[in-house]
Structures are given as C-alpha cells and as structure tokens.
C-alpha cells in the first residue's frame, strides 16, 4: 500500500503541489491524470524519494519514505521499479546491460543468472533477442518496452509509470497499454501511473485520480470517473474524446 498524506512541494515561489492526499491499495493500479506541467512527474519523484516534499509524508507499506537517510532510501527503492517518461536508457550500454544493471550492481547473481533473467524480462515485454542492440537503434515504442523490462528486472513490489504512452503513435500507445495491463494482471504489483492521456488511463487503471491545481480533485473507479458530474473531470474528458 502507498499512502500519500498532505504532500506540498514548491520550486522557488512556484507551488506545484498544494496538499496531495491519495491512498493506493495493495495490488491496485492507480492512474493519476493531469494536464502537462501540473506536477505529475514531481509527485512520482516524491514517492520514490528523488525529491523531498516541503511538508507531508509518503508511507510505503506503512513505512514513511526516509528522505533524509540515504542508506535507507536506497534500500526502499529496491522494492520499486520505475518507467521514465522518455525511458531514460543508458546510451553507452546495450539493451541487455540496461535491463540487467540493477541486478548486477545490487545482487550477488552471477553473469549467467543475470543474462537468464534479462532474457526472461525481455520476453515478457515482447523483445526477445534484442539484448545486443544499443538504445540508439530502437524506436520510441521499443525504448519504452526496454524501460519496462528494466523496471521489472528486480521483481518489484511497487511500479511507477511516468507517461507510458506519451510520444508514441496511437497504435503503439495501445500496444503499450495492453502490455502494462497484462503485466498488472500477472504480477499484481501496487502501481501508480501518471498520464495526461485519458484513453490510456481508462485502459490501465483500476482507479483514477485527477490532479488539478496542486490537489487531487477526484478519485474513483473507471466507471465512476466516466459517470461523474465533477466539472473539472468532465472538462478533462471532453477535452480529449472526439
């Protein structure tokens, strides 16, 4: 379970998050919808401790995220996998090395076991045999898949997805949505996905929250979200359908 309690965050005098409260149940996929620049990525980075909130706290499995204790923070991140907006692959490493990096640095697995795990994760995302390519040789959709495989490599309890479909054409976006949905069904990791793409949100989310002007203004299941009379949500849905 991930509990976000009263999180506030400003950069200089620009307040991005003004008190965010949200609880994500164990095994649930929560999608946080919001316009570009509304602070979705910032919120994910606060959850995984890449940024520190000005006030409020995040509880992961009941434990507060230890923002001021780097050692504990590193240990906590071991339970997380994260897919970054632009995949954030390391250009100098091959696809296989990218996926296996966390295993190589943080576990005592030997090279053979690592390469077996890497193959297995690449197969999961439908990229078997791509180990020896360099990230520069991949298309946008393939990069996201490698990013996904890397996020899954350590068999995380929690997965964070930052805009999984942004920058992809609708067809490839649909493929990634299906892939994420399959993974969620298979591994039941507690997940948060942030996106501004409403189709993606409806496809992959168990529940949907809307982040607007620094606060969560709506939380509900997909059906509830489609039916809601909350004007901000309605505007957001109308703005994108059609």
């Amino acid at each position: 379970m991930i509990e976000i309690k009263g999180i506030e965050k400003s950069f200089g005098d620009h307040q991005v998050l003004a008190g965010v409260d949200l609880t994500v149940g164990t095994g649930e996929t929560m999608v946080i919808l919001g316009r570009s620049g509304c602070g979705k990525s910032v919120l994910l980075k606060l959850v995984i401790g890449l940024l520190k909130p000005d006030s409020g706290q995040v509880l992961v499995g009941g434990e507060p995220v230890p923002y001021d204790r780097p050692g504990d923070l590193f240990r906590m991140r071991g339970k997380f996998g994260m897919l970054f907006q632009a995949a954030a692959l390391f250009d100098s490493l091959t696809v296989g090395e990218n996926v296996g990096l966390g295993l190589k640095e943080n576990t005592s697995l030997n090279a053979g076991e690592i390469s077996r795990r890497v193959k297995e994760k690449l197969l999961t995302v439908g990229l078997d045999g791509a180990e020896f390519l360099k990230p520069a040789e991949l298309s946008g959709g393939m990069k996201k898949r490698v990013g996904l495989a890397r996020a899954l490599a350590m068999d995380p309890e929690y997965i964070l997805y930052d805009e999984p479909t942004t920058g992809l054409d609708p067809v490839m976006g649909g493929v990634i949505n299906e892939l994420i949905r399959d993974l969620q069904h298979k591994f039941r990791a507690t997940s948060i996905a942030v996106t501004h793409d409403i189709h993606s949100a409806f496809r992959i989310g168990d529940r949907i929250a809307l982040l607007h002007e620094g606060r969560i203004v709506h939380v509900g299941t997909v059906a509830e979200t489609k039916a809601t009379r909350n004007p901000v949500v309605e505007e957001f849905i109308e703005g994108q359908s059609g």
Partner: peptide, 18 residues
C-alpha cells in the same frame, strides 16, 4: 536532463560512484 541519473538512483546505484 534525460532522467538517466534518476533512473540510476531508482535502481539503487550511486551516480557519484558509478
């Protein structure tokens, strides 16, 4: 800028060391 440093940190790798 491309969030690779953040990615290293989330994988439990110290960017200074690496």
């Amino acid at each position: 800028v491309t969030e690779e440093i953040d990615a290293l940190k989330t994988m439990g790798i110290n960017p200074v060391r690496y």
